[in-house]
Computed example of a mutant assay.
Amino acid sequence: MFKNLYRYLAVLLFMFSAATNAYSASKTVLVVGDSLSAEYGISRGTGWVALLEQRLKEQKVPANVINASVSGETTSGGRTRLPALLSKHKPDIVVIELGANDGLRGLPVPAAEANLRAMIDASQKAGARVLLVGNRMPPNYGRDYADKFFSMFGTVSRDVKVPLAPFMLDGVAQKPELFQPDRLHPVAEAHPIILGNIWPHLQPILKAK
């Protein structure tokens, strides 16, 4: 009887330990993005990256989040900055949220795709896992360009086998009231939705050893 009880308690202890250690290894998360991640036009601490930090603390996930996002950044600029960021921070996870400014400027999609591939390759060679964050262009940029731009993220994700958060502004882009007067940058109230679009794709990477 006591042997069975001890075994039962041992199993419970093991299960509890496994659950609490799902995020046991501390990780450094590097976010390389543009104004959508740099808290443009909103109060500090209200953007989705800051909300991510809060969520990690609330869930007792041992992680250090570094927001290296710059307003106006393109994939070319991110590609140029990335080597120094990888060398300085030695991240375990790199979140790449770039491309919107390439699209808004009408830059060639193949060039943006090449830059994203190069960034992913550099991150992986540095030992980091990568999450790619996708976006869409407003309809006034033309159906053909908008479709090519959006499909670029899926193509890169499939080809290099990295997870993709397909559309970071899903649930936001459809609601004009969630944007600042420039109609490009979300207000603070939209950022929990943005985090909700990214979190399901980031969480498995945080749990991976």
Rank of each mutant, 00 (worst) to 15 (best):
P110L: 12
R81V: 00
G99R: 08
L98P: 11
R117P: 04
R105Q: 13
D102H: 06
P110V: 12
P91Q: 12
G99N: 09
R105G: 06
L104S: 04
G99I: 05
N115K: 01
A100R: 11
V94D: 07
D92A: 09
G103K: 13
L98Y: 05
S87V: 06
R105A: 06
P110A: 12
P83L: 04
R105V: 01
V95I: 08
H89Y: 15
P83A: 01
L104C: 04
H89T: 02
V109P: 03
V109R: 10
L82V: 02
M119S: 08
H89S: 09
I96D: 15
V95W: 00
E113Q: 14
N101V: 00
L107R: 14
L86H: 03
R117F: 09
L107K: 09
A118H: 00
G103R: 14
R81G: 01
G106R: 13
A112P: 10
L82K: 03
P110G: 06
S87H: 10
K88Y: 04
N115F: 04
G106N: 11
K90Q: 15
P83S: 05
L116S: 04
E113L: 02
I93N: 07
L107E: 10
P91C: 07
M119R: 02
P91I: 03
A112N: 06
P83Q: 07
